[in-house]
Design a protein around this nucleic acid. Sequence first.
DNA 1: CTCTCCCTT
Length: 706
Amino acid sequence: MDSKYSLIGNGNKLNISQFKIKPKPTPILFNRRNGPSSPKKVKLNDSESKPSLANGNKFKISIQEQRTKLPVYDKKNKLLDLIKRHNTLIILGETGSGKTTQIPQYINSARLQNNGKIAITQPRRVAAVSIATRVAQEFGNGQTVGDTVGYTVRFEDVTSKRTKIKYLTDGMLLREAMFDNLLMEYTVIILDEAHERTINTDVLFGIVKNAQKVRESRNLEPLKIIIMSATMDVDHFSKYFNNCQAVYLEGRTYPVNVFYTVKPHDDYQTASVATFFKIHREAPANHDVLIFLTGQEEIEAVAHQIRVLSKDPEVEGPPVRVCTLYAAQPSSQQMTVFNPSPQNLRKVIISTNIAETSVTITGIKYIIDSGMVKARTYHPATGLELLKVQRISQEQAWQRTGRAGRDSEGTCYRLYTRSQFEMMQKSTIPEIQRANLTSVALQLLALDIHALYFDFMDKPPEDAITTAFEQLKLLGAIDNVESSSLTSLGEQMVKFPLDPRFSKILLSASNFGCLVEVLTIVSLLSVESILLSPPNKREQVQMIRQKFFSAYGDHITLLNIYREFSNVGQNCRSWCHEHYINMRNILQAREVRSQLEEICTRAGLTLSSCGSQMEQVRRCLLTGLFMNVAELHRDRQYITLDKRQVVSIHPSSVLHGQQPHFVLFTEVVQTTKRYLRLLSTVEGEWLQEAAPDYFRTHSIKCARES
DNA sequence: CTCTCCCTT
């Protein structure tokens, strides 16, 4: 029997109300793919079933016994010998090999680190914390995290004098390098998950390579570098690290069958729903499904469709539990994904790329891969950040596929043809080649390195670097764009874990007598938005928040919200709920604020308050954001002073619908239009004063007359 | 009159 349902979408954007079920079938047709199920060796490398780490103590074997059953265990002596003989080593380890937890312990038990520490970096803080906790447990002897095994992430340093094995985020190690570019605390540095190519890992590549060289030339304690990666492009890595040795570690994954569609399907939302019901009809209950889509709206739409359709009495198959998964979601909702489902139920998880690497769910038997991802790209020429849905890379496709083979054999349906797959880029472009580099350039300058001459594994585009230097010059962090050293202002800026523009604002605040207020605003700007806005409760939200609204704009409005928040004390949860405030994010802002306040105090800045003098605050914001000013023109259009772009005030702003002559904005994001987000009104006379050099070359068109 | 993928100091 063929599929019963054909799903009619409305172009690429599915409107739920127009969504219909047709009784006649037009199923999505799939081809079985030829060749091996994956480009790398994917095989079950032992016949007896071994519990994976994620499954915990299901078989009640001791923690020490579990260690001996990891694939890496058989290679222990071989690995130690290689690590002893080579100063730099690449370890390619498949998922489940045990490399991240075991290798640091092997090194420690052989005392290869001498009197130094072993650092292991992770791109994500949750990983650093949870892996360190696990390894401390394995270490035994009644030790807990913070003894021999510890971790350091932002806001949390769980290490001690006895700590030998230290897990940290790559960003944290980078920050440590700002204060000691030779990283003398460590004798072994392991950069894990190197294939993810985060900006921080990429910068660390060059920093550890340099530290190793300098330490050798000065006869200091040698530094061992170990690069751990799941990549296949060993040559690229090896070449960069002076043709160093690479070893391969088998993992523990299961084969995954891959299917491609017979013809292309542009409407991947509809295709994913149809494919889900094909699986739903054929597969036993408890065979869970993971669908990869691009964003919140799309995910909620597809979730709704599946919920409605699965309740249709004509649909065959067990009852369905639909879970959605994306980062913006409240964490309580995210956790429901891990709830074990009852025997006769099918769980389907509809997720963004968060489930590609950051969140691992056990029991997934089927993957539906849309082949698309939403990604932010930066255009140096326009200074614009674009959020665009685009095709994934082949690497990403394999990563998604692998999510079905973690604890048994699986199946992956790709909603694209084989030839479409072959047209995809082989690898994802490293983040450093598509990001704004102002922060990176500043960090490197703190190490007396000019980013143009830094030893990058993959160089960023030159105009991205020059734009970054122009920005640093404007902010006063350097004297000229060729400079390899910072001004004293620049040196102060490096101390803050912030966008350089925000550091500049903090450093000017004392002069305006409003550091207390500016600390709050900058903290709120450097976390995710604290404002919740459920589309169906728009009017309600507007009403309850009205009392916070400031005619000066969003920055002062945010300040007003935070001021009340900091006075509610115990009833924080209910207050957030009542005012549609994202509690996780505002609590994070509070943490950031106290960290920044501490740095300010140490830098000798006066914690002054301007009370209700909001002019001071807006003047102060201009000292870091003067290049982000737009002017109203006669046709009621705003045009930016910097790049002369036509822009609009985002409807989420409190200034939307008003027409102040000059607005300062925090960022411009292009979606359906070029929108300014997070604005404040400013006066034309303040501009010259805030950045005299800049405004000599960026003339202000006076459009007042209209 | 719209909505922001994922991370991190």
